[in-house]
Amino acid sequence: MTDASYAKLLWLEAKRIQDPDGADEIQISRGDGGIFERIQMRQGDVYTFDERLIPFDGTPQIDIILREVNEATHQASVIGGAGINPSEIGLGERTQSIGAPSSSLYELWYKVI
Rank of each mutant, 00 (worst) to 15 (best):
G81C: 10
D57A: 05
L10D: 12
S103L: 06
E51W: 05
Y110S: 05
E71A: 07
N85T: 02
Q96H: 00
R67N: 10
R16W: 03
G31C: 11
S102M: 06
A76W: 04
E25Y: 14
G83C: 12
V78Y: 02
I17Q: 02
A82F: 13
M41R: 06
R67T: 10
G92K: 02
Q75C: 12
I64Q: 06
R67D: 14
Y106T: 05
G83Q: 11
P20M: 04
R42L: 03
L105K: 01
P60L: 05
A100I: 07
S103P: 02
E25R: 12
G34F: 14
E71D: 01
L12W: 09
R67P: 07
A23K: 02
P55A: 07
I39E: 01
L91H: 06
V46K: 15
K8M: 05
M41I: 09
T73L: 01
A72R: 09
A76K: 09
M1H: 08
D21C: 00
A4D: 15
L53W: 13
G22L: 11
S77N: 05
Q61I: 04
V112A: 08
Q75W: 11
I89C: 07
Y6E: 08
I65E: 08
G83S: 13
G22M: 12
L10N: 13
E68F: 13
S5E: 15
I26Q: 01
E71V: 04
G90Y: 10
K111H: 14
D3S: 03
E71P: 02
Y6C: 01
E37C: 13
V69I: 15
W109S: 15
W11Q: 09
G92S: 11
L53G: 07
E107R: 08
N85R: 07
E93A: 11
A7S: 14
D63P: 00
D32C: 04
Q27Y: 00
G34Q: 12
L53H: 10
P60K: 02
K8P: 00
G83R: 10
D19S: 07
G44H: 12
T73W: 08
A100N: 10
V78L: 09
A76M: 07
G22E: 07
E51I: 00
A23R: 04
Q40N: 11
Y110K: 06
